[in-house]
Design a protein around this nucleic acid. Structure first.
Length: 476
DNA sequence: ATGTGC
């Protein structure tokens, strides 16, 4: 990235004072090394976000930021509805409410080893994965609406898991304010048979070992010890969220000029939070949040079924479930004054610090679990929201390693079969319907997740708790 | 991300 115009005001923080149409500064949390590696497009896009009406404090980018549609992936921006603030479909992204759910298994890595092959095959058989994958569930229109309003709580009411699961899900598994009538029939039809499916791209289900502990107290509060086996599920709202994103990007691009909004980039299409189109988007997007949480809840149920056949002694409980593509109304202190703001997080995880009232009572003292997915071979991390996260970036942190190479470039560089063999040699079993998908997701196509996580920690966004080493990965 | 797209 070209660094002119940026001021390094801390070791892990860069600030660009407002120029031109920017209403607030742009801030990127990264070291000089990651900043240099970062795409120039991130600087351009985050500065564009800073021009949007009603933006508060600054437009932020996380250390894993990369070029996205309109907003960078790894972008965080908050808007005040009373100051003409906007909601942007591009600020949430196409994969609405994509997120990570982590599960305890009650197993130790020694117990996992002899079962790995069978578990990989059974999970791959049980959890549909890949482009256009469908499941055993088909939702009639009334059930679709109930799902869009009820989220993971709807799934539990239908027998997929238990109410105890919901305690550890963001919003207790049900996002209030969803408006199924604002979700098009086309979006609903696309989703009809996609509940309980992983999808494609960077989505996965992994069986992982807690390979290193960095923060004993937080790990203990999360119920994690070295050698424990956990499951991470990374997926979103499938075709429904994608269709909602597509339709509202189009509608917002059409209506922006009528609201007097000058867009620096058509992809930044947005609408006032209080406008009819803005309110319809929020209602539809909250339905997609419920869809994603219901999806991860059903996949949890399928994962339990797979473990029950291979390792009946396993007991799978939810450690935490949090999204990284959302726009949510939250209270934040701005200059010591509490304000209610709509926080966009696109490829950025909510990371509330200790004491936040929205956290489950047994985690409140330590802070919110923050799951960071790495690439297939490199491992993942469990972090905890830092006490300073609220004032640094509206209680947000990074969400993954971030791509360092385009999908196209990755396809030219690797063969899926060879990637699978190489990882198998290191004890990491991949199961995927698509060699092409595996090649696109080759570990070498991603940044070093350890560097990204270290910088989120050093920047005061989220502290490292544990490292997770992959053993089995079901990949879309 | 996606009933993948030039």
């Amino acid at each position: 990235m070209e660094l002119s115009g940026w001021v390094q005001d801390e070791a892990y923080r860069w600030r660009r004072p407002p120029t031109g149409a920017m209403r607030v500064p742009a801030v990127i949390y990264a070291s000089a090394a990651l900043m240099a590696e970062m795409d120039d497009k991130v600087a351009e896009q985050i500065a564009n976000v800073a021009t949007l009406p009603g933006i508060v404090e600054a437009a932020y980018a996380m250390p894993d930021a990369h070029w996205g549609y309109g907003f960078p992936i790894g972008g965080v921006a908050a808007f005040d509805p009373d100051l003409g603030g906007v909601v942007s479909a591009g600020g949430v992204g196409f994969d609405i409410s994509c997120g990570v759910r982590a599960l305890h298994t009650g197993l130790r890595v020694g117990e996992l080893r002899p079962l790995k092959e069978a578990l990989a095959d059974t999970l791959f058989g049980e959890v549909p994965a890949g482009v256009g994958s469908t499941g055993a569930i088909s939702l009639a229109p009334a059930e679709m609406d109930a799902m869009l309003e009820g989220g993971a709580a709807w799934a539990v009411a239908r027998g997929y898991g238990t109410s105890a699961d919901l305690v550890r899900v963001e919003e207790q598994g049900r996002m209030a304010g969803a408006l199924p009538d604002c979700v098009s029939d086309k979006a609903k039809n696309r989703q009809r048979r996609e509940m309980g499916t992983l999808g494609s791209g960077n989505h996965y289900l992994e069986v992982q070992e807690v390979s290193e502990i960095f923060d004993r107290a937080a790990a203990a509060a999360f119920g994690l010890a070295q050698g424990d086996v956990v499951v991470s599920i990374h997926c979103g709202s499938r075709g429904l969220g994608h269709q909602i994103g597509t339709e509202f990007l189009r509608d917002m691009a059409k209506s922006a000029a009528g609201f007097g909004i000058a867009l620096p980039d058509r992809e930044l299409a947005c609408a006032p939070l209080t406008s009819p189109v803005g309110e319809r988007y929020l209602g539809a997007m909250r339905g997609a949040i419920n869809c994603a949480m219901a999806n991860r809840q059903i996949i949890t149920h399928l994962t339990r079924a797979a473990f029950a056949r291979i390792a009946p002694e396993a007991e799978l409980s939810v450690l935490y479930d949090v999204s990284h593509n959302t726009c949510k109304l939250e209270e934040h202190q701005v200059g010591g004054v509490p304000r209610r703001l709509f926080v966009h997080r696109k490829g950025a995880t909510r990371a509330f610090g200790p004491g936040h009232p929205d956290l489950p009572s047994d985690l409140r003292a330590v802070g919110q679990p923050v799951m960071i997915g790495g690439s297939m071979g490199t491992g993942s991390y469990m972090l905890v929201g830092a006490a300073t996260a609220g004032e640094r970036a509206f209680g947000s942190a990074c969400h993954g390693a971030g791509r360092s190479m385009s999908r196209h470039q990755a396809l030219r560089t690797w063969r899926g079969r060879a990637v699978i063999d190489e990882l198998a040699g290191r004890g990491i079993l991949i199961r995927s319907p698509s060699y092409r998908g595996v090649a696109e997701e080759a570990p070498g196509a991603y940044k070093d997740v350890t560097a990204v996580v270290d910088e989120a920690d050093q920047a005061g966004l989220a502290r490292k708790v544990a490292r997770l080493k992959p053993h089995v990965c079901v990949k879309g």
